[in-house]
Structures are given as structure tokens and as C-alpha cells.
């Protein structure tokens, strides 16, 4: 046991830089995806609650598709489909080929998928803001935009916080899937480091530990945010 442990530490030192890179890639992927997801979520919620039937239909199609098809499958479809479409577009317009590297592909895919989940969260949160708030803002002479930005939006964000937090936790773990489409994230790097030697299990456990750390830190941060800004929604812990 002591022999394998020192062996593990020395191998760890050799691969430390690579592991750090893997963690960076995972974090980059998660943060960029959540930003894209938030944007798509806001747009989607707006579309779902809009007066235009066509817009509502598209938004409904979007959320149904994403929630009905597994993440990994969507990832494979978008990974190949997006590049094909983009290649044809850039050719047609005579532009230079625009590469979708694995990180961008991962961000696009995860952002697209979680945009649908965020749509539902934002929609629920928006519906939960009391109608009176909109009317009061109008009565005070604010335009629609002013009312939305200063009155409704902050309240909506507070209500959406638990849902967003849960989705972030799921997204953080979903980044593990991109190693299947070839991105050198933490898991792929851990596999590379441990492969061939009897050190595969230690490296996998190390990767699991790092994810645990990231989840715990996120959890603490989210709980702090909820205490600071949240409305104390009732949700069985998920």
C-alpha cells in the first residue's frame, strides 16, 4: 500500500499540469455554457409568454425537443450538424472557413440544452411575480422597459434563483459528457494519466474528488446567494 501511494504521488506530479488544464477546461465549459443558457433561457421565456402564437410554438418545440432527447444524443447531433451547416453557410457567403473547435461545440451544445431548462425556470419565475407589480410600475409612470428592468426583473431573478441553482449543479456534472465527444476535459485527462498503469482507479477517484469540491463550493455559493437575495422557495433538496 505505501509503495503504490508514493508511486501515485510521483505519477501525479508528472501529470499535474495536464490535470490542471483539464480542470480549467471543465470550468471554462461550464461557465460559458451557463452564460449562453441564461441568454437562451431569457429569450425562450419571453417567446413562450409572448402574444405571438408562432413564437410560442417554436419555444414549445425547443423545450420539448431538448427535454425529450438525451443530452449525449443531442450533443452528437449538434456536434456534426452545426459544423455542416456552418461550412455550407461560409462557403455560400464566400467567407473563410470558421472552425467550431471542441470547446465551442461543447459550449454551444450545453448552452442550447440548458437554455431549454432555464426557459422553464424563467417562465415559472416570471409568472410568479405578482401582477400588481407590473401595474404599479405603470401607475408610477414607468415605461414598459423601465418597469421591466427596475421592478420585475430583480424580483424574477430572486424567484428563479433556486431553479437556476439546481440547473447549474446539473450542468456542472453534465460537462463530464463532453469527454465522450473528444474534448480534453478533467475526466479524459484523468483517464490518460491513469491508463495502462494500476493507477486508473486512484486517478478516477481524484477526478471525482475534484468534481465533489466544485459541487460543494457551488452549493455553498448558491446557498449564500439564496440567503442574501432569495425568497426562500420550498424545494426538496435536489
Amino acid at each position: 500500500m505505501p509503495v503504490t501511494f508514493t508511486h501515485f504521488i510521483s505519477t501525479l506530479e508528472a501529470y499535474a499540469q495536464l490535470l490542471l488544464l483539464g480542470v480549467c477546461v471543465t470550468l471554462q465549459l461550464a461557465l460559458l455554457s451557463v452564460l449562453l443558457g441564461l441568454l437562451l433561457g431569457l429569450l425562450g421565456a419571453a417567446a413562450k409568454l409572448s402574444g405571438l402564437r408562432l413564437l410560442r410554438l417554436w419555444a414549445q418545440l425547443y423545450t420539448t425537443l431538448v427535454r425529450g432527447v438525451p443530452d449525449l444524443l443531442l450533443m452528437l447531433l449538434i456536434f456534426y450538424g452545426a459544423q455542416t451547416g456552418l461550412s455550407r453557410l461560409t462557403r455560400a457567403l464566400g467567407w473563410d472557413y470558421i472552425e467550431i473547435d471542441p470547446l465551442s461545440a461543447g459550449v454551444l451544445t450545453l448552452g442550447f440544452i440548458y437554455g431549454a431548462y432555464f426557459t422553464e425556470t424563467f417562465r415559472g419565475a416570471l409568472l410568479a411575480v405578482p401582477r400588481g407589480q407590473f401595474q404599479a410600475a405603470k401607475a408610477l409612470g414607468m415605461t414598459f422597459t423601465q418597469g421591466f428592468v427596475h421592478v420585475v426583473f430583480p424580483q424574477m431573478m430572486r424567484l428563479a434563483l433556486p431553479g437556476l441553482g439546481n440547473n447549474w449543479m446539473v450542468l456542472l456534472k453534465a460537462t463530464a459528457l463532453v469527454s465522450v465527444i473528444g474534448l480534453a476535459d478533467l475526466i479524459k485527462v484523468a483517464q490518460m494519466a491513469g491508463k495502462g498503469s494500476q493507477l486508473l482507479l486512484p486517478f478516477l477517484l481524484l477526478a471525482a474528488l475534484i468534481y465533489l469540491l466544485l459541487s460543494s463550493v457551488s452549493n455553498l455559493a448558491l446557498r449564500w446567494l439564496e440567503r442574501r437575495y432569495g425568497v426562500g422557495a420550498q424545494e426538496p433538496s435536489r
Binding site: L201, L204, A208
Partner: peptide, 11 residues
């Protein structure tokens, strides 16, 4: 719940 299912499967 704190680690991805993929890692659990690999382990």
C-alpha cells in the same frame, strides 16, 4: 449527487 454519473460508471 456531487459527482457526475459518467465518473461513477467509469469507477
Amino acid at each position: 449527487r456531487g459527482t457526475p454519473l459518467y465518473i461513477q460508471l467509469l469507477i
